[in-house]
Every structure is written in C-alpha cells, then in structure tokens.
Design a protein around this nucleic acid. Structure first.
Length: 239
RNA sequence: CGGAUCCCAAA
C-alpha cells in the first residue's frame, strides 16, 4: 500500500491527475483496500482534474468504511476536492458533518471562496468557523485578507491585520505580508500599504509588483517608476 | 518523506 501510494503521489506531484486516478483504480483492482493516506491522494487527484463524479464515488467509499472521523487529513482533502470542483455547497456540507473540528477543512473552504472571487462568502465562512470554536491560523488570515481585498472591505481588512500583528504572525510570513499589501492597495490605502512595505523583513518581486501596480492604478506614475528604480537598485529583477 | 488546507501580485 505504501508503494502504491507513493506512486500515485508522484503522478499528482507532476500534475498527472488522470494517471494518478488510473493507478488508484488499478490498486483497488489488485485487491488493495485504500487506507486514509491513499484516499487523500485519490481525492487530490479528483480535485486536480475536476473529476467530481469519481470524487463522489470515492467519497462514498470513505463513508462506507467509516474513515472520515478517523483522519483530519481525509476531511480536509474531501472538502478541498469539492472546492476544486466548484461544488461549494457539498464542500460546506462536509465541513459541517465533520465530527472533529477541522481547521484545514475550513481553510480549504474559505480559500476556495476567496479564490473564486466570492469575498463575502469567504468572510461569512470565517465567522461561522469562529462561531463553531475553531481558531484561525496564518493560512486562514491570509485567505481572509485576500477576501477583504476582493470586496474592498477595508474595515474587516484592518481587523484581520491587527489580529495578525497581535499574534505575531507577520514577521515570518511573506505570503501574509504580500496579501496585506495587495489588500491595502486595492482599497486605495497607498500610505498604509507603503508603511507595511517598509516594514517587511523580506521583499520579493511580488511585493514590489503589488506596490507598483497600486501606484499605477491610482495614477501615481512617478511613484511607480521610482519604485521600479529602487527595486532594481536593490537587486530584484523585474519579471 | 506514502497523506490534507494557504502557498501570496498580474496574467
């Protein structure tokens, strides 16, 4: 089973979801009953190629074997599969069904909504998640910041920002920092954005691009060009 | 190190 699972994981890593699923089936035909790790990869393969029907089949198998409550990884993988197939109501249903409160499952749902541009729904989930007693982590917050940028919800964005700071999550996570930068820019808060920018421990090309794009969007062409120069002088190559 | 969620901008 470990060998089969490694093989399937390899296909997924190389974005060969179709082949991964074929090997998953082959494994079963061979008389091997998938365990939780194998099912996780099965779900992931389905999500990666939006094979919703196959995903539902595997979901049913998981339920039949009663594995869902035994592994938090399975729960989040299942939610993620539905999210990747754009089946948000099913994803939400699974989240609610999970007996153990599952942070990653919520994160999968919230990030899916944010990814699809449904900022409000993402933030609603965030509230539901807290209401159900699950504490957010830096992943959750990053997704929420993204959602705030989409909906131009500056107030909420500021709330999440202060929460991130209070928990000391900003110093180490460039993804969260860049998401904040982008959110402030989208909300027209160039000053706040630049402030954050100056405080970042590291800046990559994405940080610079957010800043430059924001200045361009609001008609500050000269500022944008200045940033470009500074960026180059600091050894970051434009892409 | 056989397994999950974010993995950030623009496109």
């Amino acid at each position: 089973i470990v060998a089969w699972t490694s093989l399937i994981g390899g296909y997924i890593e190389h974005e060969k979801g179709e082949e991964a699923l074929q090997w998953f089936s082959k494994m079963q035909v061979d008389g091997i009953t998938p365990d939780a790790p194998a099912f996780v990869l099965g779900m992931k393969a389905c999500g990666s190629i939006k094979a919703m029907e196959k995903g539902q089949e595997i979901h049913a198998e998981i339920e039949r074997q009663g594995l869902l409550d035994g592994s938090p990884f399975l729960g989040s993988a299942l939610v993620d599969m539905y999210v990747k197939c754009n089946a948000f109501s099913q994803a939400h249903e699974v989240v609610n069904k999970l007996k153990l409160r599952n942070l990653a499952a919520w994160n999968a749902l919230i990030s899916g909504f944010a990814e699809q541009g449904h900022g409000e729904k993402a933030l609603n989930c965030f509230k539901q998640m807290r209401h159900s007693g699950v504490s957010p982590d830096v992943v959750t917050f990053t997704c929420c910041v993204k959602a705030c940028g989409i909906t131009r919800d500056l107030d909420m964005g500021r709330n999440v920002h202060s929460e991130l700071e209070r928990q000391g999550l900003l110093g180490a996570d460039i993804f969260a920092c860049n998401a904040l930068l982008d959110m402030y820019m989208k909300c027209g808060q160039l000053f706040s954005a630049h402030e954050i920018f100056d405080k970042l421990p590291f800046r990559n090309v994405v940080s610079w691009n957010s800043l430059i794009a924001g200045y361009v969007d609001y008609g500050y062409g000269n500022e944008a060009l200045k940033c470009l120069k500074t960026m180059k002088s600091m050894g970051v190559s434009p892409n």
